[in-house]
Design a protein around this nucleic acid. Sequence first.
DNA 1: CGGGCCTTTGACGCTTCTCAACGACAGTGG
DNA 2: CCACTGTCGTTGAGAAGCGTCAAAGGCCCG
Lengths: 253, 253
Amino acid sequence: MSDAPVLDLATIRHGCAHCSLQQLCLPAGINPTELQQLDDIVRRRRPVARGERLYRPGDALTAVYVARDGAFKTVSISEEGEEQVVGFHLPGELIGLDALGAGTHRCEAVALTTANVCEVPFDQLATIAAQLPSLQHQLLRVIGQSVGRDQDHLGMLVRRQAGERIALFLHGLSERYRNIGQSATQFKLPMSREDIAHYLGLALETVSRGFTRLQEEGVIELAGRRVDIRNPAELNRLAHSAEHEEPRRSARA
Amino acid sequence: MSDAPVLDLATIRHGCAHCSLQQLCLPAGINPTELQQLDDIVRRRRPVARGERLYRPGDALTAVYVARDGAFKTVSISEEGEEQVVGFHLPGELIGLDALGAGTHRCEAVALTTANVCEVPFDQLATIAAQLPSLQHQLLRVIGQSVGRDQDHLGMLVRRQAGERIALFLHGLSERYRNIGQSATQFKLPMSREDIAHYLGLALETVSRGFTRLQEEGVIELAGRRVDIRNPAELNRLAHSAEHEEPRRSARA
DNA sequence: CGGGCCTTTGACGCTTCTCAACGACAGTGG
DNA sequence: CCACTGTCGTTGAGAAGCGTCAAAGGCCCG
């Protein structure tokens, strides 16, 4: 009783003011006194276990969520029971916006790893956002960024072939890790090949083959879910230009 | 000079209070006195010609737009110059949210037909939304609906084959026309086959073949861009279940 | 009435899906 | 400590859907 896990308490006690994600999350750009108001409504939850859900399809919109660490996927289930992965969510990226339209969630949000999550009651967030222009502004910005990621996602799916989608996926993930201050070249994929397939609109075998091919070409090094990007320039090239083009002589020519 | 086109003036003078889209647009659910505040900032523009753009990629976010009639597409251009149609926008659906994240537009918004547009200066909208909780609420709702349409779009692209995507597209369009009080079974497509292809992630020839096939099966009647949905139940079935399944005996069995 | 754009249709090749089996790895229990 | 079992990932072979190229027909607008 007297000694709960040290790390958890430390994390939980720290408010937004001490959070390393502060500048990427809702608090970005709002001043200290305003921050306190936001902080007051944020609930910091105990770790969420891998596979746990923050909400399910049909649940009423009660809160939006942000992971402080770990990763989530949001999934919509088609009528035939097939999973469609709508998005992956790294620390600092808002989760739960799928309920903004109808007031109930369209997706479910599943933890891909053990994760610590901040829960922001939505009504209260809307209320104080109305009082704090900078928070309102930031809320819209964060929503907009989420829309932007969805559009990037769309861009991966339309008229791109498998290898290109996979390069784009790795490249995007790499950028997002860089953004939150982690290594952009070495990381562990929090999601399975199947999740990636359902995200990219491919068969999981195709994803696996694509990874293998990138490894054979020396672009990445794979060990299960560990990825090491050996040739970021080439990955970038594969992601942004047609694949059939022959490899360039020099990296930047 | 003294007599401008009658219809335009009539439309322009009518404020939100007299607009048939009132309940689908930003004013939904807000009271008459509040409506006036919103109305005061809305600029109603002269008709926009087919092919005209409301904004281009890189433009600063100055306003969001709603068509009162006509239709728009939002397009993002890939580095290779290929068009990707991000969305189609019917009357009452907000246009311009792609700039929420970064403050500059990612897409361009092109009129597919001659159209009348309301332009809502974004800063002013944010300001009065902070003062009017019901408007703030509705703004978030409308943004959420837009996110929802994007997710529906995503759902069309992932692991669905051509015929299914096309059925889904027609079905969704039909629903949206119904929503704005137009016929759900007979309408003129405002966009070209190529636009549809770029929206569905298919080759335009594949779209054309898909339409032809639906016509051969008696599901729709085609005459250029005029569509008549003869068998909505079957269209619905094609859109929501696997295509390979043999046709059902009765409509609801 | 002419021109250009949009749409349709055909034939062929390739990417990717499907089905199937095997291999790697981690957690579990003996 | 090791065998066991289930999940996950890899690899192979064959089929099929779709993209590509090509050409002709139709519609709208000037």
